[in-house]
Design a binder for these strands. Structure first.
Lengths: 210, 210, 210, 210
DNA sequence: TATGAATGAGCCTTCATTCAT
DNA sequence: GATGAATGAAGGCTCATTCAT
C-alpha cells in the first residue's frame, strides 16, 4: 500500500521513529539494525530511506520528536495548581507516571548511551527538556518563596534536588526493568516520591507559618 | 619490552582494561573498535587477544574490575565517623569526588548504554555496587535513628533519596561533560551537595534536640 | 540484473556452487577465499551470504549437489544393456568420460582434502555415491553369474576390483592434471579401461562356454 | 634442553616432520597451525623456525622425507622372489600392510589435498614414488612374460591395473578411517587383495602351461 | 639454543546504503 | 512509492612469523 496523502506519510514516519526508539533503546545506535527497525515498523528497509536520509538522521528525528511535547503535561499540572505547594505536590505525584511510561526512560537511555557519539543531540535535549523542566521547578520554588509558602535560597539548585529522585528512578528503571518486569517495581515509586515530597516540604520549612 | 613476569602481564591486562573503559565510554560496546582499544593501550590488536578471548570478555573483565573495590573508600569514611550525622556529612562531602573522578561515571555510562545487551552484567553490578551502597547508607540512617540523632521511618527508601543527587550528577556528568570541560562544571557540585546535606538534615529533624 | 524470480535465484545459487567447487578444488576449504568464490561467480561477497549462511554451508551445499544426480547416467547405461557382460562393457567404456569430466574428480578431490574436517560429509557422500555405485556393479555381477555369463564368487568384493582403476585414474587426474593439460593424458584412459575390461572378462571366465 | 649434537638436531627435525605430517593429514596445509605442530612435537613454535624457514618449507621437507625410503621394502620383497609370479604374490600380500600403516595414506592424503597449491611437490612425489613403483611392477611383469610364466602385452599399462586396488584402498582408508576405527576395516583388505591376485593371475593366463 | 610474547596482514561475516524492478 | 537484491567498506578474530629474553 502506498502513502499518497500527507497524513499517511506522517504515519509512516512516526512508525519508523517509534520502531527506531525501541531498537535504539534495546541495542543502542551502533548495534541497532536498520533492517530490524524497518521490519518492526511493518515496512521495508528501502522504504525507510524514502523517509530518512540515513540512520543518523533517523536518530536525530527521534530526539527531535522526543524533545518536543514533553513539558505540556507538566506545564498543565503546574499552571493549574493554586499554590506553589500544590504545584510541587502535583509534580511529584506525577513523577512515577513519567518514570513508568515507556517513552521518557527509553529516550533517556538512548541519549545516555549515544551521547558521546552525538554530542549536539545531547546538548539540544538538555536545553529543550532538562533546562526547561528545571526552570519550571525553579519558577515554582521562587513563587512559593515570594508567597511565603516556604523558604528557598537558591531556586535553581533546589530545583535540581527536587528532580534528582526522578533521574535516579529513570536510571534504575533502565538498568533493572527486566528484573522487575513481573509486575512489582525495583522500588515502590509512589512511596519513594511520597517520602521525597514529605521530606522536601519539611526541609523547605513549608507549613511552619500555618 | 615483553611481558614475561606475571606482574608485567597484569599490567598489560590492566592497560587493556583501562583503554577499553575509555573506548567503551566514548563509543559504547558495539561501536568501540578492538583495534582502537589496543592502540590506546599502546599494544597491538593481536596482543589483546592474548589477554582476552573476545571483545565481550574484555567488557566483562572491565565490569568485574569496576565492581570490586568501589566501596572501600566509602566504607572507610563511614566507619571512621563518630556519629551517623558525621558519617552522612562525610559521605555527601565525598560525593563530588566520586562524580568527578573518571572511573565511576564512565562505568555507569557503559553500564547504562549496554545494559540491555548484557543484562547479567547490569544485574551483577547492581548487586555488587548499588545495593551495597544503599545498604551502607540505610545502616547509617538506622544507627542515627536508634541513637536519637534524627528520625527515619523507612531507612531503605530514605537512603535512596540520600543517593539520588549522586545519580543525577553522574548522569549530567556523562551527558554534559564536554560542555563543561573548560573548567566550570555544568553545576556547582560542592554547592549542590552542601545544600542537599542541609536540607536532608532538616528534613530528618536532626539537631532539634540539641 | 537482480534476481527476483525463483528461477533467477536458483541460477545464482548454482553459480555460487560451481564457483565454490572450482575454488575448493584449487585451494581446499580452508584456503579458498569467499571473496574469490563470489568474484568467480560474477557476484559480490555480500551477495553470497544472501544465498548461503556461511562458508561451511556453501561447502555442504556443494557436496549435496554433487551427491544427488551422479548415478543417473550410469544407471541408464546399465539398465539398457541386454546382458551383464554388455552392461560391464558399457560401464567401463563410460569410465574415461567420468574421469575426464570436470565435476567428479573435483568433488572427489575436495572430499579427500577436507574429509577430516567434515567427516559427516564424507560419510554421506560415501553412502550416497560410492556404496550405491558398488551395489550397482555387484548387482550386475550377480546377474551375470546367475545367467551363467561368467562366474563370480563374491560380487561385492569383485565389484570393488571392477571400480578400482576408476579410483586410481581419478587420483592421478587430480594429482597430475596440470602435467597433462596440454592434451595428452598422463595415461591413455581408453587403453587402460579396454585392457581392464579384457582382463576382467578373462578372469571371470566369460565367454568360455561359448 | 638444547640440541648440541647433530644427532639431537636430526631428532628434533624428524619430530617436527612427523608432527607436521599428522597435522597436515588432519587439517590440510592451510588449516594446520604451526603452533599445534610444534606442540605435538613437544617443542615450541619459535624452535620450529630454527629448523624450518617457513611453514611451506616444512611441508616440502615432509614430502622429501616421505618420498625417500618408501621403495626399499618393496624392492626387497620383489628382489628376493624366485619368480615373477612369486614377486607379484609377495607384492600383493604386502599391499594391506602399506594401506594400513600410518605413513603412506597420510602422505597421499596430504599430497592430494594440497597438490594444487604445490604442484611441483606433487610432480616430484609422482616421479619419485609412483613412477618408480609402476616401473618396478612393469619390470616384474616383463620378466614373467619373458620367462613364459604368463602373458603380458603392455607391461606399463598392466602394472597400473595391478596397482589400482592399492590406490582405491588408500583413498577409502583416508575417507573412512574414522568409520572403521573400531577395528573392522571398511573392507576386508586381505580378502580383497587375495581375490585381486587370483583374478590377475587368471587374466594373465598364469599356470596354464603347467 | 629455546621460548613464547608481540605483531599485523588477511579473511569471514555483517550491515548501511543503493538501485533495478 | 515500495521492495529487497546487491554491494563493499568495516570490524572481529586468527595465525604465520619475528624477536627480546
Amino acid at each position: 500500500m502506498r502513502a499518497r496523502t500527507n497524513q499517511a506519510k506522517d504515519e509512516r514516519r512516526t512508525a519508523f521513529l517509534m520502531a527506531a526508539m525501541d531498537e535504539f533503546f534495546e541495542n543502542g545506535f551502533a548495534a541497532a539494525r536498520v533492517d530490524d527497525i524497518a521490519r518492526r515498523a511493518g515496512l521495508s528497509k528501502g522504504t525507510l530511506y524514502l523517509y530518512f536520509k540515513s540512520k543518523k538522521e533517523l536518530f536525530q528525528g527521534l530526539i527531535d520528536m522526543a524533545a518536543a511535547p514533553k513539558r505540556q503535561q507538566l506545564e498543565k499540572i503546574v499552571s493549574e495548581a493554586p499554590t506553589a505547594t500544590a504545584a510541587i505536590e502535583g509534580f511529584l505525584r506525577f513523577a512515577p507516571v513519567i518514570v513508568r511510561q515507556s517513552i521518557v526512560p527509553r529516550i533517556i537511555k538512548v541519549m545516555i548511551g549515544d551521547s558521546r557519539r552525538f554530542p549536539e543531540v545531547a546538548h539540544t535535549y538538555n536545553q529543550q527538556v532538562i533546562e526547561r523542566t528545571l526552570g519550571l521547578i525553579a519558577d515554582i520554588l521562587k513563587r512559593g518563596h515570594d508567597n511565603g509558602e516556604f523558604t528557598v535560597e537558591d531556586p535553581k539548585l533546589t530545583a535540581s534536588l527536587v528532580i534528582a529522585p526522578i533521574f535516579m528512578s529513570l536510571v534504575w528503571h533502565i538498568l533493572f526493568e527486566q528484573d522487575s518486569s513481573d509486575g512489582n517495581d525495583f522500588v515502590d515509586l509512589e512511596a519513594l516520591f511520597s517520602l521525597h515530597h514529605k521530606m522536601l516540604m519539611k526541609a523547605l520549612g513549608a507549613g511552619n507559618t500555618a
